[in-house]
Design a protein around this nucleic acid. Structure first.
Lengths: 228, 228
DNA sequence: TTCATATAATGAACATTGTTTACTATTTTT
DNA sequence: AAAAATAGTAAACAATGTTCATTATATGAA
């Protein structure tokens, strides 16, 4: 019985490796049962002995790419400064991973998940992948009181949606048109989000709109998005 | 020569209408040459006399959906209050259009554009669709000095990436898991973005901060996630 | 070792979809 | 009305997903 498991695991590994290679090199477009089987060195029919279909196989790659992405971020922030700038570096490293492997972006965010109930865990992994990849930096910023602990979850969400939206537009619609401009946009967005906010606790009941305008005008004189 | 044009335009219209119906009702998945041709009442081969392929046809739908989306937003903000809250309403209406027609979201943001050089205009239309749909509200806010003209482009970009990212996660990965929670997230994000900010280098007086706080609290007191 | 059995792997078949082409029917032109 | 042009189609081919009967190999009992 043990031999069967070892051999089965090996077989699964061959198909998994083939799928990962194809995803990274060619993108989701050229991942199909025949190309996977070819690369693995088996007939297409053999794949169905080890996986329900190519979709299951493809989503099994998510865990590995997730680890690879985290490692990519860790390597990038090694030796970089800590603090809010380090956090920005981590987020940018996360983004560049998907720029480097657009096929992995497709897998994480574009490819339809056949059975969503069955793949809830994978969806959550994907959703939290950015937060996880930058976890060290978040913890550092919180522990050094560079960010207020109570606003961190909100900041994570803002950065998450912004990064995903930016990647979606750039990778799928080539807007902005160049990587340089993309990197610029990302920088601007991160600066805007991570700028100190006012989170006072005072209550007010008087003429909101007038105050709003007044405050607003007093604030816009300071240039926004001036980093990098 | 004139008859040819009229007839050709009609034919194109039949295929276009069939494609739009399928996209709205069934999503991109069930849009294919045969289903389009069936619905239009012709053979699949006929489609190739009027369009390069189904992809060209599909992307021709973008203009119509863009108009429909703008109309949807206009209808929704009719009779709603103006100002920053009206702007939020417009953005939320934009989002609900894609919640209602996930197939249109796929078309706008997911479907691969074969020839990107040829489709640059469409990509730009898609990219600016949110800004355009909310144009009235932006203009109102600027003219009433509720937002400062100089920061508006930055705010537009932030809202754009956030809304696209949020829609991507919700429609493709069911995160968050319910529409209610999605609407909540959108509200939180819009509030965060449209709140007045200070910059990292702001040497603001304490009086500014107090005013700012006051405004902040007055804004968040508005119930969040109350639509639908 | 040999033979019977289980199972791993496959070739071939079928379904679905994209696309082209030769053919037919209709319309237009002369 | 005959000839030419055109519209529309059926049928064929290719690429891909999927299943299944068959083959080849490994396993285990005698």
């Amino acid at each position: 019985m043990k031999n069967k498991e070892i051999q089965g695991q090996r077989m699964r590994g061959y198909f998994l490796a083939a799928t990962k290679d194809l995803l990274k090199a060619e993108g989701l477009r050229s991942v199909n049962v025949r190309s996977i089987a070819d690369k693995a060195g088996y007939s297409p029919a053999t794949m169905y002995s080890y996986f329900k279909d190519a979709n299951e196989l493809v989503f099994l790659c998510v865990h590995d790419f997730y680890e690879e992405c985290k490692q990519h971020v860790r390597n990038r922030i090694k030796g970089s400064e800590k603090g809010v700038d380090g956090l920005k570096t981590a987020v940018k490293a996360y983004a560049t991973f998907f720029i480097q492997y657009p096929g992995v972006f497709e897998l994480f965010f574009i490819e339809k998940m056949g059975d969503l109930g069955n793949k809830k865990g994978i969806a959550d992994l994907i959703n939290t992948s950015l937060d996880q990849a930058c976890e060290e930096e978040w913890i550092y910023c919180i522990s050094r009181k560079l960010l207020h602990a109570e606003e961190v979850e909100g900041l994570k969400a803002q950065i998450r949606y912004t990064v995903f939206g930016l990647l979606l537009l750039y990778l799928n619609r080539r807007v902005p048109a160049s990587y340089t401009e993309f990197a610029n946009q990302l920088n601007l967005q991160l600066d805007a989000i991570l700028q100190p906010r006012v989170t006072g606790s005072a209550r007010s009941t008087s003429s909101v709109k007038v105050q709003h305008s007044a405050v607003h005008n007093s604030l816009i004189s300071v240039k926004i998005g001036n980093n990098r």
